[in-house]
Design a protein around this nucleic acid. Structure first.
Lengths: 351, 351
DNA sequence: CTGAAAGCGCTAACAT
DNA sequence: ATGTTAGCGCTTTCAG
């Protein structure tokens, strides 16, 4: 502070890039009469600073309307408080509940969520992942797919904590919060068998997990002797699944296997379509035809009859995944990095 | 490069913080035998660099698996290539299409999207907005609400480009891509009047826009003389709206005004509930009761009868909003910063 | 508990 | 077309 004027002039041409000259921590510090680092501590670790300074800094923040620059903070501290979530698509997705829980849980701890859509085809996965890594997030949460081996390798190489969700895969990249699609499919077959159904069929979207679910369903049905004669009647529709697929699917199946008395659908949307079509066709549900969905959409309980479906706790998945990432970011160990959240068959009016 | 060994030793204790010692542009530059800034140019403005150097840099990137650090880049260039989107909630939202379009359009130009949920109550708006500004995004897209005047003021003060969507408000913060909820409500009243309905009613969620829509609907209905005797029969349900609200709403309205022959619902979800309840009650749709939804969900066309609804092009809104932000970020002017995308009444089987 | 110095990894500005 | 230099705004490290 005690510079000679001469020097000042000589050293003048500093701060060349000062354009937006935005409000910085230095300004706040100056106002509070402390060093920038002290102001930083007052904001980030208030317990490490005297009460008086804390007060002065807070007042300076208040007065100036200072908002910290997390880019700069993240660059310096290597903690961005950013978490990336990847879903196949956002519209009509069964992952919405998970995304909502993620955002909420993260926001409650000062983290922010970046959302990326990989598409069901997986064509954009590599580019998306590069864009994500470039932001150095504190974690990446994968819901749905991540086929690309290049992408998986890069993810591992980046050292960023990863949580895969909505599945239980044998070789997770890192952490895992999900359930077994195979168990689920088999459970539905047993459920229908116990309910007295003797000729089951299925409609599934062609995304990988749904296909695995329905393969397990078919296998279990066959071994229980409720798959009809020959192979199980199955109709495959393109992902993402829609009610239209369900309506069409029912007609196709009825045409191919008129004797069916139950249909397992890869999503509640498809099940809704089947229900609508059955009613249009004058087929009584559940007496002539049982319907089981998957996902337990909010609307499913309000249909007539209410839809029997398989519920997966998407909120729990999102919440848990967020916590795992934040624990890792805090340097804490995650107790149960591979976690099976299971599923529940919710029996309602369509069975 | 021509330092004396003595100097080297003297200046030695550099790079103190080298922990993760991540791969940086410097490493790539060294490998390609160019200055860091040249490597930077090769990656960001390839046309400003000779073919040979471009090749060398690209090879170095390839060999090392280098992924740029956009935190550092954003800090230096003041362009983060990040856009924040704010929605009330993500689940069961009519904005999904918009969010999808946003993500896609942004990703196609190397931008990333941050998603924030403000909640319908608006309680978290201030905190959310602060978290957003702290990341210095190149733009903020608001869908749904942003009541808080403090938040609005901060947004303006931050100088970040803003696009408000799904509405046409008189005093936009900055840019605007939406439609008039008042016009929409009135249009539905006229539509029902032309279809011969003489005693209309409405079920609306209590979010601000829906309420305005239905106020305009009621006013137009009254002036057309199709609101029944006295005030329009209207039932208000809490946002976000659900099929359950629709089922309940129909019973309430029927109880209060048994003579109604048409219901305008604030969302397709509510309309679905009304349709289901009508069928459960043995009320013929559309002969005894007409139903109009709002939002044109994918499933609406696949109901039986297919749902008449009001369609808003959410994809166009998202796409346009994204383009507006990117144009601003490029320093280009936006031609039509206030844009009315209108709406369409899609007549199907329920009227 | 407080502060000075040195960078985090990149790019704008100014040369050449 | 390429390079040099000086930051962007913050936090880590090391010293009092």
């Amino acid at each position: 502070m005690a510079e000679h004027d001469i020097d000042k002039v000589a050293v003048a041409p500093k701060r060349r890039r000062s354009k937006g000259t935005s409000l910085t921590l230095r300004d706040v510090a100056r106002l509070a009469n402390v060093a920038p680092i002290t102001a930083s501590r007052a904001l980030n670790t208030p317990e490490a600073v005297s009460d008086e300074i804390l007060l002065r800094v807070r007042e300076a923040v208040e007065r100036t309307g200072y908002v910290p620059n997390l880019l700069a903070g993240g660059l310096a501290s290597r903690r961005t408080r950013l978490v990336a979530a990847v879903v196949p698509t956002i519209t009509g997705s069964v992952f919405l509940e998970t995304v909502q829980a993620l955002t909420d849980t993260l926001a409650a701890s000062g983290y922010q969520m970046m959302l990326g859509q990989a598409g069901y085809a997986g064509s954009r996965e590599d580019a998306l992942l590069e864009a994500i890594i470039a932001r150095r997030p504190d974690g990446v949460i994968l819901t749905g797919i991540m086929h690309s081996t290049l992408a998986r390798r890069r993810l591992v190489a980046s050292g960023i904590p990863v949580v895969e969700t909505w599945d239980l895969t044998p070789n997770p990249v890192d952490m895992l919060v999900g359930f077994s699609h195979e168990q689920l499919g088999a459970a539905v077959a047993h459920f229908l068998q116990r309910r007295g159904r003797r000729h089951v069929a299925s409609i599934t979207a062609d995304d990988e997990r749904a296909v695995r679910r329905h393969a397990a369903f078919g296998a279990a049905a066959a071994s229980l002797g409720i798959a009809g004669s020959g192979a199980l009647a199955q109709h495959v529709v393109p992902a993402p699944s829609t009610a239209a697929s369900g309506r069409e699917g029912l007609r196709v199946l009825l045409d191919r296997a008129p004797g069916i008395d139950a249909i397992f659908c890869s999503s509640d949307m498809v099940a809704l379509g089947v229900l609508v079509e059955a009613q249009a066709l004058g087929i009584a549900v559940p007496s002539q035809l049982a319907i089981v969905g998957m996902g337990d959409l909010a609307l499913s309980r309000d249909l007539q009859p209410p839809l029997t479906t398989v519920r997966v706790d998407g909120t729990l998945i999102g919440d848990t995944a967020a916590r795992y990432i934040m624990q890792r970011a805090d340097g804490r160990a995650v107790e149960q990095p591979i976690r099976d959240v299971g599923f529940t068959i919710v029996e309602r009016g369509t069975t």
